[in-house]
């Protein structure tokens, strides 16, 4: 098999966002059968399905517009760590429900306005996927916000734990609003979203929930990024190794 990459700019752009969703979906899937209540196992199953589902649509579309001989699943299973372009936030591991909810919340508050903005894309297929995903993201944000408030304003232990998780993940948040040459190209052609314009919306929804949750916005100004150019933390590789193992051990098969 030749190198598994996309050449077309739009396809590469679509893959970025597909990567966010497949990586987050895979992280969420790790938690299935481990939730604090059966109801929450159901809810997390829903979130996982939504992210994997939208990833599947985006990868399939990216493969189609790229005109390469690859399938959507090839893009998932045969690209390596350096070729994945997801945000660093979504690849972060969780030790428990606290990290999981903090990660979801910080990302949901970004992804909802992102999908809403992408719904106006010139590309009909992308706009359609984004419109559907926005509906799901509204539910995701409601779910994670609800838990942020319950954990923040629950017991002293839950307050301490969720604050620590927010503090730990805060350094991956600015990356969501960075833009590069590809983003600008997509914005200029009316296909993509200028994520730097989403920051205000994100900050106001995050601040409102943190306040209701009696939590403090982290003051640490240190931020890290690099996911969009394949500079990941060390957590992505082991996840891909597990996710891709079966396809890579018997390539070219039908499953």
């Amino acid at each position: 098999m030749t190198a598994v990459t996309t050449q077309n700019a739009l396809a590469t752009y679509v893959v970025r966002h597909a990567d966010d969703n497949v990586v987050l979906g895979q992280r969420l899937a790790e938690y299935i059968s481990r939730a604090p209540e059966l109801e929450e196992d159901l809810a997390i199953g829903n979130l996982t399905l939504d992210h994997i589902g939208v990833a599947d649509h985006l990868f399939t579309y990216a493969a189609k517009i790229d005109g390469c001989d690859l399938s959507g699943d090839d893009l998932v299973m045969f690209r390596s760590e350096r070729d994945y372009t997801n945000l660093l936030l979504v690849e972060q591991r969780h030790d428990g429900f606290d990290d999981l909810i903090a990660r979801q919340f910080l990302f949901d508050a970004y992804q909802l306005p992102f999908w809403e903005a992408l719904s106006a894309s010139n590309d009909e297929t992308i706009a359609g996927i984004a419109q559907r995903a926005a509906k799901e993201a509204r539910y995701h944000l409601r779910h994670s916000s609800m838990w942020m408030v319950r954990l923040g304003d629950g017991t002293p232990e839950s307050h301490t734990r969720i604050q620590a998780s927010i503090d730990r993940l805060w350094r991956f948040t600015s990356e969501m609003f960075e833009t590069d040459a590809l983003d600008r190209e997509m914005v200029e052609s009316g296909l993509g979203v200028d994520t730097s314009t989403l920051r205000e919306t994100w900050e106001s929804s995050v601040d409102a929930v943190l306040e209701e949750a009696t939590l403090t916005r982290p003051q640490d100004s240190f931020q890290t990024s690099g996911g969009r150019s394949g500079m990941h933390t060390e957590y992505l590789g082991p996840m891909l190794a597990e996710m891709q193992w079966l396809q890579r051990s018997q390539p070219g098969m039908s499953w």
Partner: peptide
């Protein structure tokens, strides 16, 4: 679920496990 060979198989398996919780 984590090692399912395609995204479709993965989604179906997640849906099944979710049904079981339900």
């Amino acid at each position: 679920i984590l090692r399912a060979p395609t995204l479709l198989r993965k989604a179906i398996l997640i849906a099944k496990v979710q049904d079981e919780a339900g």
